[in-house]
């Protein structure tokens, strides 16, 4: 039980898929202009990754090694098509705002990556816990970035104006926050903050600059 719990909680901070494993970054940046789109995308991705990991793990012993990628992609894209259909049916406006990015869950390396790296070798229960943990870790980043971009860029959270609530009447929204570059900056700074907090995640530099010993 503790191992399952560990599988579930580790990807949240310590092995976060976005900030450490470099998985699923495209959508993490693209859908975070507002918190609402970030939440919808998180939900869609978490559902798809949980179901796909469980399904792939269930049939893992029957998948021939040579065609495993095609089988994984087929399962994932079938799930994404269902998810896309559901969004269109019940939240049409949201599906228009997310544009092609729901469809792009198919090639989201997070879903493929966890299927290939974990679900192919572990029983369904563990795979489900791992997928849920990774889905939540991804969601966590999306929510943080989405909140920052919407709050600073539009001055709202979930379309509710912030200024009257916080008593910041003169606050002018920073238009740049809604543009593409801001997403990169926020994620970069977020990674910096995270690594300052957890120094074990710091990457070792390829080279070390060591003064001018040869001059002496």
């Amino acid at each position: 039980m503790t191992r399952l719990l560990d599988r579930l909680t580790r990807p949240l901070i310590d092995e976060n898929p976005v900030t450490l494993q470099i998985l699923g970054i495209c959508s993490a940046l693209a859908v975070t202009t507002t918190l609402a789109t970030a939440l919808t995308m998180s939900l869609a991705l978490t559902v798809v990754i949980c179901l796909s990991a469980t399904l792939i793990s269930l049939i893992r012993n029957h998948i021939p090694q040579s065609v495993r990628l095609i089988i994984q992609i087929t399962i994932i894209s079938a799930l994404v098509i269902v998810m896309d259909g559901l969004l269109r049916a019940f939240a049409y406006e949201m599906s228009q705002r997310l544009s092609v990015f729901v469809g792009l869950i198919v090639t989201n390396c997070l879903v493929m990556g966890r299927a290939e790296a974990f679900a192919m070798r572990h029983p369904p229960g563990a795979s489900f816990a791992d997928a849920l943990g990774n889905g939540l870790g991804y969601s966590l980043i999306l929510i943080v970035v989405g909140t920052l971009r919407e709050g600073l860029g539009l001055g709202t959270i979930l379309a509710v104006p912030l200024a009257p609530m916080l008593g910041l009447e003169g606050f002018t929204p920073i238009a740049l926050m809604q543009r593409a570059p801001a997403a990169f900056f926020i994620l970069g700074l977020l990674i910096w903050a995270l690594r300052a907090w957890r120094p074990t995640q710091v990457e070792t530099p390829e080279f070390r600059v060591t003064g001018h010993e040869e001059d002496a």
Binding site: G188, I191, W192, A193, T204
Partner: peptide, 13 residues
């Protein structure tokens, strides 16, 4: 803390 991924994001930005 910016080594690797962090600085990569800032450059891309």
């Amino acid at each position: 803390g910016l080594q690797g991924l962090g600085s990569a994001f800032l450059i891309t930005g």
